[in-house]
Design a protein around this nucleic acid. Structure first.
Lengths: 386, 386
DNA sequence: TTGTAAGCGTTATCAC
DNA sequence: GTGATAACGCTTACAA
């Protein structure tokens, strides 16, 4: 599409010059042609680089403005000046955590003039690699990714990183990669959740969680154990279950746990799905909250709100994680910090406690008067002897 | 990065030639240089166009394979052969409907070799226009969009469409644009919801809905009215409320409605948010479901599941809408159908009825024995005289 | 059947 | 200060 096509000479001579409308796309060539100067001059004027005649510059700017000139990002990319696009690879978009994270990413990216190209790995290692390759072939300026649960070998990312490609991991990170990472403070979150359950009078806290090899799983488990330890409760591995539970698999798991010699009096779940699955299972089995058990989830705010008032929760700061991750990545891309310290940023989680977690007051009162030994030795009595 | 850099001549002469590893990026030049032929020959061999010496072709293919050659999509775009990317513009990613829709879009796009570039309008007309402009400047092959609630003037899209840019609208569509549209069957969905409430014994059904000028709002209202009419109930505009309610604005609305001379005995809400807000408001006011009122929402499946068993719902087929929209768009881009009929595709909605909507059996029984006139004349008596 | 050269929009490196 | 020119990776007339 050439300028002359829209702006015949006669128009050029009129006092009111042709003005571009929405989405007509002009190039520096068009500007050069109208002003009878060379494209290089136009280019220079536009980015104000070399010393250029102020008058020429003014003319160029004015003309560019009038024609609504927009540099062609594709040509820029070909020249190697970056695409101002970042690739985001997540396991699933239709997962509240990730869609909120993407929301945060997009907000930052937009403000800083970047675009977001989304890829889903669908929890498949192979597809994740393909996605990365695709993103690179589109010459994204950087990569933001949350690893698939299948991914254990990250050498392909290390190669990339060694080649200088800016990479930031978020949420699902790998300890085998020395890149910037942004995660929720899973340890503190799990600690707070467990502590809250203990302070609510619970002693046998089951923990339903996801794949054991994920860093987030390990951190949460560590927080859970640390809280138990602080209150002198023994860690019982029978109470911890790992997996990729479908909605109908949580029920049997709950049954199994409730059939233990000493059944749990609380559940701490590690995800939206698990929280919902567990809640449903408990309801179906006519177990009431908080009389029979407590439930606390590691969930996203909106999900927690939907489930309210049944669910106490540790809120995952999904959006903020996305924001911080995007910020760090773009800083890296633009080399804001010559030597950005490669480290892990932990975003604080928030505990939202609902009454449903807490034992009824009269039982709490009884608990308070019991000696600590008493509490430890016969914990379930206090809870289920209602 | 040149081939010679990785593949010194000596290597070339060995029986086991150099093989590229992940993400080394070679060009047709590299292939040409290694095979001592011209880049054009390589290009032709690669896309099998002109008749080319089968042997040459074989050599080229083999070499391309070995070097893991990937055409540079940016160079292709510059040539004007399309970017194999589609722009998706939605009001909000972190909205379950849209994230599911995007999920469907991405799935189809991936299968057909396209990438998805996401933009959020944040319900702002201005930003929507900016997004479209950005998408076009990135030379996306087509546009998939769901209009912001602020958008009433769509001439900018008409211009684009007239220029031949493939466009498909989904969910939030405009009647002023003659493009392919993909929407949920809002009329039937609303009809089914309303009918279900009526069949569950309700007679004064309030309808909380979103902005009145949106097509989806109008279609739903039409379905609601049609169902009322079918059962001989009069339409009362006092029972219909429009708006962009925040979570704390639904409560007062519910109060207002319950304070009407003849209060509603059911609520039909038009979105996740409204359903949740309404549910919360009812709970806070100690109104029980279904004893006091019924509630049915126009929501997404996962949200409904989260709220289960409190909420009967008409499920929005978000993912399928995304899939169909993406399919139609890519068909358009690839001109599968020379003259694709421009029309509106309506994806069926599904009614999920939970017991919570239905009046208790003994009341239903009383209702059944009452004469139709009786039912019409004193509807609330039947419902609230429990 | 293959090679040469122009061009897509832009910037950088030269000259002038 | 400004204008040619080459280059980015690729496709495609046109020539050979």
């Amino acid at each position: 599409m050439n300028f002359s096509q829209f702006c015949p000479l006669t128009t050029l001579l009129t006092p009111l010059p042709y003005t571009a409308t929405f989405l007509e796309t002009f190039t520096i060539k068009d500007i050069a042609r109208e002003l009878n100067i060379s494209t290089s001059t136009v280019s220079r004027a536009l980015r104000g680089s070399y010393e250029i005649n102020p008058e020429t510059k003014r003319l160029v700017m004015e003309c560019a403005e009038r024609l609504n000139y927009r540099p062609n990002p594709i040509a820029l990319s070909l020249k190697g000046s970056g695409t101002r696009a970042i690739g985001v690879i997540v396991p699933q978009i239709a997962n509240y955590f990730f869609s909120q994270a993407i929301n945060g990413i997009e907000a930052i990216a937009y403000n800083r003039g970047y675009h977001v190209i989304i890829f889903q790995s669908h929890e498949s290692y192979e597809r994740e690699v393909a996605n990365v390759e695709q993103a690179m072939s589109r010459r994204v300026d950087g990569l933001l990714l949350s690893l698939s649960s299948e991914t254990s070998d990250v050498t392909y990312l290390r190669e990339l990183h060694d080649k200088g490609v800016p990479i930031v991991l978020f949420d699902r990170v790998s300890s085998e990669l020395e890149v910037t990472k942004v995660v929720a403070d899973n340890f503190k979150g799990a600690f707070a959740a467990t502590e809250h359950l203990i302070q609510s009078g619970r002693r046998r806290i089951a923990h339903l969680t996801i794949q054991p090899w994920l860093s987030i799983t390990q951190e949460r488990l560590a927080g859970y154990r640390a809280a138990l330890e602080k209150y002198g409760l023994t860690y019982d591995e029978n109470l911890v279950r790992y997996g990729t539970f479908g909605p109908n698999e949580v029920g049997p798991m709950v049954d199994e746990l409730m059939a233990l010699p000493v059944a749990p009096d609380a559940f701490f779940t590690a995800s939206d799905r698990l929280a919902v699955g567990c809640l449903t299972a408990l309801r179906q089995r006519n177990l009431t909250i908080p009389d029979d058990v407590s439930l606390i989830g590691f969930t996203n705010l909106n999900v927690a709100e939907l489930l309210s008032p049944s669910l106490s929760t540790v809120v995952q700061p999904a959006q903020e994680i996305g924001q911080v991750a995007a910020e760090r990545l773009i800083d890296l891309i633009e080399r804001k910090h010559r030597a950005q310290p490669v480290g892990t940023v932990r975003i604080a989680t928030e505990l939202i406690a609902r009454d449903s977690t807490r034992l009824p007051e009269h039982i709490m009162a009884r608990l308070a008067t019991a000696s600590p030994e008493d509490q430890k030795s016969k914990p379930r009595d206090f809870v289920l002897s209602i």
